[in-house]
Simulated assay, not measured.
Amino acid sequence: MTKRKKILVLSLAIVGVLVIGGSFFLYTQSSHKKEANNQFESYINKQGISPNDIEKKSMEKDHKQGSYIFNVIFKDDPAYTYEYIYMPNNDMTLLVFKDNVGVDSGMKHEPLK
Score class of each variant (00 low, 15 high):
24 F>W: 14
48 G>A: 06
9 V>S: 08
35 E>T: 06
75 K>Y: 07
48 G>W: 04
81 T>Y: 05
55 E>M: 14
17 V>L: 12
1 M>N: 10
101 V>R: 13
87 M>S: 13
38 N>S: 09
100 N>V: 02
75 K>I: 07
64 K>S: 11
1 M>I: 15
36 A>D: 00
3 K>A: 15
88 P>S: 01
1 M>S: 13
82 Y>R: 02
76 D>Y: 06
64 K>Y: 10
110 E>V: 10
74 F>C: 06
93 T>K: 14
89 N>D: 10
112 L>C: 07
109 H>Q: 02
20 I>V: 12
17 V>Y: 07
60 E>R: 06
27 Y>A: 10
67 S>F: 05
18 L>F: 09
69 I>D: 03
72 V>P: 00
102 G>A: 12
107 M>Q: 04
87 M>T: 06
60 E>D: 05
32 H>C: 05
35 E>L: 04
33 K>A: 04
35 E>A: 15
89 N>R: 14
36 A>T: 07
61 K>N: 08
98 K>A: 04
63 H>V: 13
87 M>Y: 06
86 Y>M: 02
66 G>K: 00
112 L>V: 01
91 D>T: 14
63 H>E: 15
95 L>R: 12
52 N>W: 08
48 G>Y: 03
38 N>Y: 05
81 T>R: 10
90 N>S: 14
44 I>L: 09
14 I>E: 05
87 M>D: 07
8 L>P: 04
70 F>D: 00
54 I>L: 05
84 Y>F: 06
97 F>Q: 09
101 V>N: 03
74 F>E: 00
26 L>M: 13
110 E>W: 14
15 V>R: 10
68 Y>V: 00
83 E>V: 11
78 P>W: 03
104 D>Q: 15
73 I>Y: 08
32 H>T: 06
66 G>N: 00
5 K>R: 15
43 Y>L: 02
93 T>C: 12
15 V>K: 05
55 E>A: 14
48 G>L: 05
102 G>C: 11
18 L>Q: 13
24 F>H: 12
97 F>E: 01
86 Y>C: 07
93 T>M: 10
5 K>I: 13
39 Q>H: 07
49 I>T: 02
63 H>C: 12
55 E>K: 10
5 K>P: 00
106 G>A: 08
12 L>S: 08
107 M>R: 05
36 A>R: 02
68 Y>A: 04
106 G>L: 05
28 T>R: 13
75 K>W: 11
8 L>M: 12
59 M>Q: 13
28 T>Y: 14
71 N>F: 04
96 V>M: 01
21 G>T: 03
98 K>N: 05
66 G>T: 01
2 T>G: 11
112 L>H: 02
53 D>P: 01
93 T>A: 14
41 E>D: 15
98 K>I: 02
55 E>W: 03
19 V>A: 11
45 N>Q: 07
71 N>A: 07
11 S>H: 11
44 I>C: 01
57 K>V: 11
